[in-house]
Amino acid sequence: MLCCICKEREATVHLTQIAGDKMQKVDLCEECAKTKGVNDPTGFSLADLLLGLGASQEMEQSAGGVDLKCPRCGFTQADFKKAGRLGCPDCYRTFADGLDGLLKSMHKGTRHMGKVPESLRQTRDISDRLKALQKKLTKAIQDENFEQAAQLRDEIKQITAKLSNIAAT
């Protein structure tokens, strides 16, 4: 097995970290393990390491490939590989496909569960409901359940109006 950082030398250091119900594995050669500070338990964290290497691989495999560029800030896949940081808030939309797996491996979940700015709290609840209804509608149409579909369509109309009302105020 080759070292997953340098991809040149044989991996002799094998690390596993269990966080919650997720297991993460990293295989390193002596040298990379040393430079990453693996032997020093105080200065080492697997998440930092995973960010460095998992990120670029995930991003490369994602749709759009290396040429994908953020329309707002001009940040590219290659820049992320170099910096390990994104260019602007919009990059999360641009590189969403590639980031998805990365976020899954790094965090407890993939959906925000914490604080929401007061001004968005209302719209967030409504747009969540809207999304759920739209899903139902698609399914109803597929199942040719047109009576339910019509009902759902009216409901969606109402909620959309409510949402634009809030946005206007």
Partner: peptide, 26 residues
């Protein structure tokens, strides 16, 4: 948050430069 327009997504929470801080940013 009343004075500044935060970068926030309803799905991902507070958007941060490094994906390791996203969500709560805490």
């Amino acid at each position: 948050e009343k004075k500044l327009d935060y970068a926030f997504s309803s799905e991902l929470g507070y958007l941060t430069a490094c994906p390791t801080n996203i969500g709560t940013g805490i």
